[in-house]
Amino acid sequence: MSATQALAPEEESTDRWDPVREMPPSAKLVAKVLDYNETLTQSQLAEETLLPPRTVRYAISRLEDAGVVDSRFSFTDARKRLYTLDL
């Protein structure tokens, strides 16, 4: 096994987070919470991150613009959207 092969998994995980690195701290926190939890609503994200709902909305919009968060309508409540990290 060469040194390059040993570093390959670490490099992949580093590259995975590249789109998020230059984002505001709130967006990084929302992304990390979504990484730990498969799918959450905006209110659940606000609860988990302890951020105000308005800040969570801003973070989600930044993450969606970067293409690292997917959203879909909730089947149980069509008024809510479910967010999933897509890195």
Results as ranks from 00 to 15, higher is better:
A66W: 00
L29Y: 03
R79N: 14
Y58F: 14
F75V: 13
F73M: 13
L51H: 04
T39M: 08
K80Y: 14
S13I: 12
D65Q: 10
S26M: 04
R57I: 03
R79M: 05
A78S: 14
V56M: 01
T49D: 03
R72A: 10
S13Q: 15
K32C: 06
T4G: 07
T14L: 15
E64I: 15
R57T: 11
D65F: 05
S74D: 15
L51K: 03
I60E: 01
R72W: 08
V68K: 00
Q5Y: 08
E38F: 06
A8G: 04
Q5K: 12
S13P: 02
R21S: 13
Q44L: 08
E10G: 11
A46F: 01
E10K: 12
S71K: 07
L29I: 10
R57F: 05
V56L: 02
L63P: 01
K80R: 14
F75C: 08
T55F: 00
P53D: 06
A59V: 04
D77T: 05
A66F: 04
T49P: 02
A66H: 06
W17Y: 08
L34H: 03
R72P: 05
T76I: 10
V20Y: 00
V30G: 01
A59S: 10
S71F: 09
L45K: 00
I60T: 00
P19C: 07
L29Q: 11
D18W: 12
Q44E: 15
E11T: 15
D18R: 15
D65I: 03
S26L: 05
V68D: 01
S71C: 12
E12T: 14
T39P: 00
T49S: 06
V56Q: 02
Q44F: 03
D70H: 07
R79Q: 11
W17I: 13
V68G: 01
A46I: 01
P9L: 06
A66Y: 04
S74A: 12
S61V: 07
K28T: 03
R21F: 13
D70M: 09
F75Q: 14
E22P: 04
D15T: 11
R72T: 14
V33T: 11
M23P: 00
D70Y: 08
F73N: 14
D15C: 14
T14W: 12
E48M: 10
P52L: 12
G67Y: 06
P24D: 09
G67P: 07
Y58V: 15
D65Y: 07
P25D: 14
D35W: 15
F75T: 15
D77Q: 07
Q5G: 14
E48D: 05
T55N: 07
Q5A: 11
L29M: 15
E47I: 02
A8S: 07
L45A: 03
P53M: 06
E48R: 08
S26V: 04
R16D: 10
F73T: 15
L34P: 00
A8Y: 06
D35F: 10
S71T: 12
P24I: 11
A6F: 07
Y36T: 09
P25H: 06
I60L: 13
T49G: 03
D77Y: 09
L45N: 02
E11S: 12
A8F: 11
E12S: 13
E64P: 01
T49V: 11
L40V: 04
T76P: 00
M23Y: 02
R54D: 09
A59T: 00
M23D: 02
A46K: 03
L51D: 00
